[in-house]
Design a protein around this nucleic acid. Structure first.
Lengths: 215, 215
DNA sequence: TGTACATCAGTGAACGCGCGTTCACTGATGTAC
DNA sequence: TGTACATCAGTGAACGCGCGTTCACTGATGTAC
């Protein structure tokens, strides 16, 4: 949560011009979303956190939704990067790398709850923010590509559609993240780490395809 | 969304006393949550919808959270009933009945989005509402019991923990419901109905256990 | 290198709004006798 | 059956609050010459 002003260096304000207000507002939004959820953040409070007047944000964002969308876009970009890193082009071994993607998914939800909430819990209409749709697509593409390469290992006769595989894994990872990693009324105490739960699920799933050491 | 007043019969107000304000407020809350999500509902607007003054709700609920919690509790109860009905004691056949539970899960999310949102998208702390926790437990118990009976069909040597199975299925169902049935920024067009996606996922999962017609 | 000027990124005061919550109140209902 | 009274479930006016948004403004920055 550092705001990386160019000439600021974290020392606070330095006069009439903020210097990097856009970034500071995004940082503030993240902080607020993390604390109160996407619905609990206001432009006014973000401005206060950034140390500017309530009118200042309007120089950079049309409204609260635009700021929220920007946060979500950045979230998806970080998310995509993280998943791609975990996949690592399927090295050293595809099934193992695929499981790593699942772990990276949960790790992101756990370590970046504010981004995650902006991405998945906000009521932004993706249609109204084309760049948001695009960013979400980029993240999903990583998962789909990985699924495609894993699916290709299955004999053609019983090979499932890679897209379906990707959707299944995404759904399970997202379900676990939503139910067990974050705070919801239905949240349960897990008898095991969420990561292990997902790993076991993915493993069973892949076993049914004849992959993964299902002896 | 009818308010079932005892002496009212849907004909509107009948004087100083509403007669069934508590129910009317819950109905109003459902309508608002359905339209704007759990965060977009206010006590004042619920009162307006119910046709009473903004102070009236406080005779029945301590605050907005209490009303929201009541809605969520009722949602979990309906949810549990619906899942139990789908499971139908494992008849006519356990694996098939288990799939039915999955279908019922999605059907609920689709047909009762307001309840579903109150249950899973609100920021209520379950700890602060013990009855909410209990209601959520009752719903999960249905799924866990079903999983237990399905797991019992697997030879002991490779039988997975039933609790884990229940968590996997719940996570996948919830993930699909969250990502593809409801409106979120990351929502994708599915190449198939969500129900089919879940059914295929559950089937593959059970196949890995040697259950389900894995030819 | 210096000066004039355009542009940019903030200010701060103001507005109308809806919300949550309180308060003394009052109309309606139910009950004791 | 009738009356007195307690209780209950609403009223409506009021309060303080924070928000989103606008506006004319002004200080700071950058650029042309």
């Amino acid at each position: 949560m550092s705001w990386s002003g160019p000439s600021d260096g974290g020392s606070g304000r330095r006069g009439y011009h903020h210097g990097n207000l856009r970034e500071a507002l995004i940082d503030a939004a993240l902080e607020l979303i993390g604390a109160k959820g996407p619905a609990g953040f206001t432009i006014a409070e973000a401005a206060r956190l950034a140390g500017v007047s309530p009118a200042a944000p309007y120089r950079h964002f049309r409204d609260a939704d635009a700021l929220l969308a920007e946060v979500a876009v950045r979230g998806f970009d970080r998310f995509a990067t993280r998943l791609a890193k975990a996949w690592n082009e399927g090295r050293p071994e595809k099934v193992r790398a695929f499981e790593d993607v699942g772990r990276a998914y949960l790790a992101f939800a756990r370590e970046e709850p504010a981004y995650y909430a902006a991405m998945f819990d906000s009521s932004l209409a993706a249609e109204a923010h084309p760049d948001l749709q695009a960013a979400s697509d980029r993240a999903f593409a990583v998962l789909r590509d990985a699924a495609e390469q894993v699916a290709a290992m299955v004999p053609k006769a019983r090979r499932p559609p890679a897209l379906m595989m990707a959707l299944h894994i995404w759904a399970m990872a997202h379900g676990i993240a939503s139910l067990f990693v974050r705070a919801v009324p239905a949240r349960r105490k897990l008898p095991m780490p969420a990561e292990d739960l997902l790993e076991a699920g993915v493993l069973l799933y892949l076993q049914s395809l004849g992959l993964a050491g299902g002896e």
